[in-house]
Design a protein around this nucleic acid. Structure first.
Lengths: 146, 146
DNA sequence: AGTATATATGAATGACTGCTCAGATATCAG
DNA sequence: CTGATATCTGAGCAGTCATTCATATATACT
């Protein structure tokens, strides 16, 4: 346990009924997965939180999804689509943006499976893909109004 | 109505039982608020969506809140805090990041009223502020696992 | 007092991203 | 076919942001 200096955290850990175990201590160094600089850590707490930590891919997926909704322009677009189906031109008019900009955003939203669209001739009508999105938008906006 | 060319959308609009009304048509030009390039818009649809559009400040607030949760690093931090209260050192160990980086992120989360903290001596213990955050994290991760 | 430690913060940098502009594709009207 | 229109897309620029490094503050121990 070179480089480890336990002072206070051992006391706290033992107060919590758990003695720090060497096996659970994360190693300092350059490991690609278990990297961690060790000094003041509560090993028991870290181990518990680590165990409950969601899969890396899921975090990335959830993050990507939330990022799509988090942008103010896209949130406005989605709010508009929350009321009814709309074409690109309408969306541009509603949010006061160029049609090109709207199209770019819709492309992202489509790739992220947030919106769906149907084509009637030259006109593309967009709508929210499922009501998960609707719920998220509503709850986020409600949270904002508090 | 200079510059307006209605072709198909009048038909669609009338199919939906509503005739486009000139009064609701948005004006082209350089107005600071009601800017909109008019060409293929369905005036009725735009008016309806515009009316239902949430307040600009609320959109901005909700967007800022979602942005805080949308970042993968912060989402990991929040997931860790979702299990239990943790200090900065522990959080750094859990997500495998420098304590400085974690502190910077926690600062943002604190400013956005997403997390709260208590200080015990030198150690700062962070926790999620309310269960709105907990619910959002869980639902976003569940959405990702589908 | 002085030293060590836990966290906070300012500056700098590299990466990402949203918009504009120009051009491409596709569909409709004549 | 030709011209007009609705949407899409690639390149480039400007603004944002997450990390690192160095340093500052604050608390505990001796």
């Amino acid at each position: 346990m070179t480089g480890l200096r336990y002072t206070e955290q051992m006391i706290i850990a033992s107060q919590e009924g758990t003695v720090p175990q060497e096996g659970t201590v994360l190693q300092a160094g350059t490991g690609p997965e278990g990297i961690c600089e060790v000094n003041c850590v509560h090993p028991e707490a870290v181990a518990e939180a680590r165990a409950a930590l969601p899969d890396g891919r899921d975090v990335e997926t959830a993050s990507a999804f939330l990022k799509l909704v988090a942008d103010p322009t896209r949130l406005r677009l989605l709010s508009a689509l929350n009321t009814r189906e709309l074409c690109v031109c309408d969306l541009a008019a509603v949010v006061g943006l160029s049609e090109s900009a709207v199209s770019h955003q819709l492309r992202l939203l489509r790739a992220g499976r947030v919106v769906a669209f149907r084509k009637a001739g030259r006109v593309a009508y967009y709508r929210l893909l499922d009501h998960h999105v609707t719920m998220l938008i509503d709850s986020a906006l409600e949270h904002a109004r508090e």
